[in-house]
Computed example of a mutant assay.
Amino acid sequence: MESLFIEATDTTPEIDFNIESGVFSIEGKAINNDAEEFFKPILSWLDDYLTAPNEVTHVVVKLDYFNISSSKRILFVFYKLNELIDSGYTVDVKWYYHEDEDDMYEVGQDFAFMVKVPFEFCEYSLYEKVLA
């Protein structure tokens, strides 16, 4: 299976799901009007990944903001990660949020409440470089 990389646009996040490192990152803005179409290949790729996953999968989420339809699809991604946990694999999420964005922190808390995947919340400032 090959890694998945989708370059960011003005309305879609960068997707970098690296099979070798086991680090899957979602970064940028998710405000595309057709979130279902954008996330369809990502969810399909995750279905394939579930058949032969790494023992440990680290997920890094650093979204500036996202719309409601993207939020739903992001939750679907986390549901797929639940399946890994149910199968005995290790999965964790690092949820990055800007220090001035309480809303993004709260949304991350909501996601963490809805899934089994453990979340770590990481605050950053504009002047810090975020390292996964």
Score class of each variant (00 low, 15 high):
K62F: 02
D34F: 12
L81K: 03
I42Y: 02
S125M: 07
V60T: 08
D100H: 11
V93M: 11
Y105H: 13
F76S: 10
A112V: 06
L75E: 09
V56W: 14
F119C: 05
T57A: 02
E36D: 11
Y96D: 02
I26W: 00
S44G: 03
F78C: 11
S87D: 14
G108W: 03
K29I: 10
V115D: 05
E55A: 14
S70E: 05
S3F: 14
Y97W: 10
I19Q: 08
Y97C: 07
V117C: 02
I15E: 01
F76E: 09
I42A: 02
F76Y: 06
F78A: 11
T12V: 05
D100L: 10
A52L: 07
V77C: 13
E128C: 15
M1N: 04
K116N: 14
F121S: 10
P53A: 05
P118F: 12
A30S: 15
R73V: 08
D16G: 06
K62I: 03
I6H: 01
P13G: 05
L75S: 12
D47C: 04
Y89K: 11
D100T: 13
V59A: 05
A112C: 12
K94A: 09
K129P: 01
E55H: 08
S70L: 02
E83R: 12
D47L: 09
A52N: 13
L46P: 02
D10S: 14
D16C: 13
S25D: 11
I26F: 00
T9L: 09
R73Q: 13
L46I: 07
S125Q: 11
D47I: 09
I26E: 00
I6F: 05
G28C: 10
N18R: 10
D103K: 13
E7L: 09
I15G: 01
F5D: 00
D48W: 08
F119N: 06
V56S: 14
E128H: 13
R73M: 15
E123A: 15
T57S: 09
F119L: 13
D64V: 11
I85Q: 13
E106D: 15
E20C: 00
N67P: 02
L63A: 03
I74Y: 01
Y65S: 07
N82R: 08
V23G: 01
E14C: 03
T57W: 04
Y127M: 08
L50A: 05
D48L: 15
A112F: 12
K129E: 15
V77H: 04
D64F: 08
F111M: 14
K29C: 06
E128I: 15
W95K: 04
T12E: 10
N82K: 10
S21I: 07
A30L: 05
S125N: 12
L81P: 00
I74M: 10
F113E: 07
N54S: 15
D64W: 03
T57R: 01
D47H: 10
S70Q: 05
I74L: 12
V77W: 13
